[in-house]
Amino acid sequence: RPRTRITDDQLRVLRQYFDINNSPSEEQIKEMADKSGLPQKVIKHWFRNTLFKERQ
């Protein structure tokens, strides 16, 4: 599967949610997917990777 490119607008949506809650529920992930147009799987990976980077 090719790598998903996240646009600036999509990144802005993800960052807004991450700043509020870095561990979103399934419902919140679905909401983000609707707003950003990204697949839920991509959003889950983005949150996991971003949380890991923040903790380092």
Rank of each mutant, 00 (worst) to 15 (best):
K41H: 04
E26V: 09
Q40K: 15
P24C: 02
T7F: 02
D9Y: 07
Q10R: 01
L38W: 01
F47Q: 01
K53H: 10
R5M: 15
T4E: 10
Q40H: 13
N49D: 12
K44Y: 03
Q56T: 04
Q28H: 10
Q16H: 09
L51Q: 13
A33W: 02
K30V: 07
M32R: 00
I6A: 05
R3W: 02
M32C: 03
E31Y: 02
R12H: 08
H45M: 13
D9R: 08
F18C: 07
Q16R: 12
H45R: 10
D19C: 09
K41N: 10
D19Q: 06
N22V: 11
E26F: 10
F18V: 04
R48C: 02
I43F: 00
S36D: 01
Q16A: 10
R5D: 15
R48I: 12
R12I: 13
Q40E: 15
Q56H: 02
N21E: 12
E26W: 04
N21I: 04
R48Y: 03
T4V: 08
E31D: 13
Y17G: 10
F18T: 08
Q16T: 12
V13S: 11
S23A: 11
W46E: 03
I43G: 00
N21A: 12
F18I: 07
Y17T: 03
L51I: 05
I29H: 04
F47K: 01
R48A: 11
P2E: 15
P2Q: 15
R48N: 15
N22Y: 09
I6W: 02
D19W: 08
F52D: 09
S25V: 03
K35Y: 03
K35C: 03
P2V: 13
F18N: 02
R55D: 15
K35G: 03
V42G: 05
Q10E: 03
F18P: 03
Q28W: 01
N49T: 11
W46C: 02
T50Y: 03
I29Y: 06
V13T: 11
K30C: 05
P39E: 12
A33D: 00
F18L: 08
K41C: 15
S23Y: 05
V13N: 05
R55P: 03
E54A: 08
I6L: 15
R3P: 08
D34M: 09
L38G: 00
R12W: 02
L14W: 01
E27D: 14
I29A: 02
K41F: 04
S36A: 13
T4W: 00
T50P: 04
V13R: 05
I29C: 04
E27T: 12
L38V: 12
R5G: 11
E26P: 13
R48L: 09
E26A: 11
S25C: 05
K44Q: 04
S25M: 02
L11Y: 04
Q16V: 07
S23F: 11
N22C: 12
V42H: 03
Q40D: 10
I29N: 02
N49V: 10
R15A: 05
R55M: 09
I20C: 14
K44I: 09
I20L: 11
L51V: 08
Q40P: 15
D34L: 08
L14Q: 00
G37V: 03
N21Q: 09
S23D: 14
F47S: 01
K41Q: 14
S25W: 00
P2W: 01
I6T: 02
N22T: 14
P39V: 08
P2L: 14
